[in-house]
Design a protein around this nucleic acid. Structure first.
Length: 648
RNA sequence: GCCGGAGUAGCUCAGUUGGCAGAGCGGCGGUUUUGUAAACCGCAGGCCGUCGGUUCGAGUCCGACCUCCGGCUCCA
């Protein structure tokens, strides 16, 4: 038979030859380096397989080595999958009676989920022991051997071993996918139910490390058994592992919680979990964002409103929140009247819509509010500014006719792109469709989902589909960004809603002089100021662009006799609306500079005898160093320009 | 909410087998008058997360709760 190599050249092999045979036929070195083989049949997407898998005539193949591209299923995927099995091998040997569940490779590493016997637990203190045992198996270079077994026999076998999770997995495979045989992989003493593929042997795991232990629900279902998940990572070389660990450490240095404390941006109180207290410097950033929010909303035809945070429960019953969102709301009693803190601004904006008779000429009506909402999230999910209990949204509701939907949705998306562009953000888009817990008819959902999809596709926007994750009243297009350590967070959202206008009896008078029902687009672009600032802090690692910096310039007089000149210059800068401080302490210039650098103040203006007599400042830029002297006016002009352009 | 870990000075962290609460940075006072990333000397600073228990004696051992951290589930 013949297979085709990546360069297009054919390779003649005996029938039944495997990937390993192909590698050997090409060269002894490649055979030694081979970890797996990518096989593509009839031009289809290549499939990663074991080296021992037989090839077929006409296959296009590529031998995977440590140097192959990763793109999702490559050498790292293989050895991390291998490492997960080795981890299970070690844990089974060290802890009698442990039950195994699943252990896949993931972004940055792998994990394996275990159920330990009553009273036994594994903590990070045990890692050394487990890693030592893993290393024994890796040093022994045990081959991964694949075998196939009828599903019934596999069930029997795992049941006899007390491996209930494996039994459940196979039973589901049989029931849901009609599977009749399953594959097993053995390495040394350990055999696991596994689809594969795997590398040739355990010895190919060049560098690995266990990283953390955490709880995880069996099959991600919160109503089921909590298992113990051990996370680890593996690399193709020791230096790759070291680089990875170093990157993680650097990422932790830009954690917004750490920077928030160091830079005095915000704080938390044990007496108000999940609700940040904004310090003066953080408030400054908040206010700059508010300014951006307000001016851009006005430019795009929005009008700003303000609404109560506390509303009669009747409103929440009308909007549907009481029915499907109650668990996340806070309620209180006011003179015997049940009131709820708002988790969203939409019902209040519907009230404002209803306040007047609306004409089709008024539409689209775009109401914007910096709305403070409270949502009771499970306590374990709080995370600095990125997950809070009180959320300040850059919220807006666009009331429009059905004909205007696509145009208005696109305007919202465009507006979002403009905002993200101010910071150089390139968010990922996600289309979320009808959830199980929802309100409104299927017909409404069909229309709404189709409209969003059409808007995305007609405008050539890339998006991922997230089925079943829409808001309870309508589908949505979300934008997502990742934090310093790669966790993904939703920022903006554009949601299409046919339901609330109906519930609140919203109407407009059309050109035909008849009453019509408007539709409503809910949208937030930054999402929440809290989360957005958290992401900003990590994005900039605390080194904000000038326009956002809490302190934009600091005057550093060299000796006490220069303080007065420093104050005078500071006054001129303030007159140009620059945020400036004067470091009047009797410290050395070196120390003042160091502290200003640590505080990440963008401009340090050193003034001594020279500057005082010339009417200049010696400009030092954060991280860049000394830029030389400049007349005060010239510096002001430069800084003003940088701010007004919102330079990044 | 669930699983695991942690909580000592403003910050970062030591604290032995249960026996007087510690360091560096920061703060304050003084000396120094400084030219581009840390001058020198001194001083103050603690409900050892909270409550309860064991003990002659608890930062240390036990329990409950609170908060935080890493995950899971859930979400802007």
């Amino acid at each position: 038979m013949k297979v085709v190599l990546p360069d297009g050249s054919p390779l003649e092999l005996p029938d039944g030859a495997t990937g390993a045979d192909a590698a050997r036929a090409i060269g002894e070195g490649l055979a030694r380096a081979a970890l797996g083989v990518r096989v593509s049949q009839d031009g289809a997407e290549p499939d990663l397989r074991d080296l021992t898998a037989p090839l077929q005539d006409g296959d296009a193949i590529e031998i995977v080595t440590a140097r192959s591209a990763e793109d999702g299923m490559g050498p790292l995927w293989l050895i991390r999958h291998d490492a997960a099995h080795v981890l299970a091998t070690a844990v089974m040997e060290l802890y009698a009676g442990v039950k195994i569940s699943i252990g896949p490779p993931v972004e940055d590493g792998f994990y394996y989920d275990f159920e330990f016997p009553e009273g036994v637990k594994l903590t990070e203190d045990d890692f050394e022991r487990v890693e030592a045992r893993m290393l024994e198996h890796i040093s022994a270079d045990e081959p991964f051997e694949r075998s196939e077994l009828p599903a019934v026999e596999a069930i029997e076998r795992f049941r006899a071993e007390g491996q209930d999770y494996k039994v459940e997995l196979i039973e589901d495979l049989v029931r849901d996918d009609g599977v009749r045989t399953v594959s097993l992989y053995r390495n040394g003493p350990f055999t696991d139910l596994c689809r594969g593929p795997h590398g040739p042997s355990t010895g190919r795991i060049e560098a690995f490390k266990l990283t953390s232990v955490a709880g995880a629900y069996w099959r991600g279902d919160a109503s089921r058994q909590m298992l113990t998940r051990v996370y680890g990572t593996a690399f193709l070389s020791k230096s790759d592992l070291e680089d990875h660990l170093r990157r993680l450490e650097q990422a932790r240095a830009r954690d917004h919680r750490k920077l928030g404390r160091e830079l005095g941006l915000f704080m938390f109180s044990d007496l108000a979990p999940g609700m940040p207290l904004w310090l003066p410097a953080g408030t400054q950033i908040w206010n700059e964002l508010t300014r951006l929010w307000r001016t851009t909303n006005v430019e795009r035809g929005y009008v700003e409103v303000r609404t109560p945070i506390l509303y009669d429960v009747d409103l929440w019953k009308r909007s549907g929140h009481w029915q499907v969102y109650r668990d996340k709301m806070y309620f209180t009693d006011v003179e015997g009247r049940a009131m709820g803190l708002k988790p969203m601004n939409c019902p209040a904006h519907c009230q404002i819509y209803r306040n007047e008779l609306r004409s089709y000429r008024d539409l689209p009506l775009r109401l914007a509010e910096q709305g403070l909402v409270h949502r009771h999230e499970p306590s374990g999910t709080l995370h600095g500014l990125l997950r809070v209990l009180h959320i300040t949204q850059d919220d807006a509701h666009v009331f429009c006719t059905e004909d205007q939907i696509e145009d208005e949705v696109m305007r919202c998306l465009d507006f979002g792109f403009f905002i993200y562009d101010q910071f150089g953000f390139k968010p990922r888009l996600e289309l979320s469709t009808r959830p199980e817990k929802r309100v409104g008819s299927d017909e409404m959902w069909d229309k709404a989902e189709a409209a969003l999809r059409r808007t995305l596709e007609e405008n050539g926007l890339e998006y991922e589909l997230n089925e079943g994750d829409g808001a309870f009243y309508g589908p949505k297009i979300d934008s997502h960004m990742t934090d310093a350590v790669g966790r993904s967070w939703q920022l903006g959202t554009v949601q299409l809603d046919y339901y609330m206008p109906e519930q609140f009896g919203l109407t407009y008078v059309g050109a035909d002089n008849a009453e019509h029902r408007p539709v409503m687009i809910h949208r937030a672009l930054m999402g929440a100021f809290e989360r957005f600032i958290g992401i900003l802090i990590e994005h900039y690692a605390g080194e904000f662009p000038l326009w956002l910096s809490p302190v934009q310039a600091i005057m550093l007089p060299i000796a006490d006799r220069h303080v007065e000149y420093a104050r005078e210059v500071a006054g001129r800068l303030r007159a140009a609306a620059l945020r400036v401080e004067v470091d009047e302490r009797s410290e050395s210039v070196g120390k003042k500079i160091r502290e200003a650098e640590v505080r990440k103040v963008p401009y340090m203006l050193v003034v001594g005898d020279q500057e005082q007599s010339d009417g200049t400042v010696a400009v030092r830029r954060h991280r860049e160093g000394d830029l030389g002297a400049a007349p005060v006016e010239e510096f002001i002009e430069r800084a003003r320009d940088e701010i007004d352009r919102r330079a990044r």
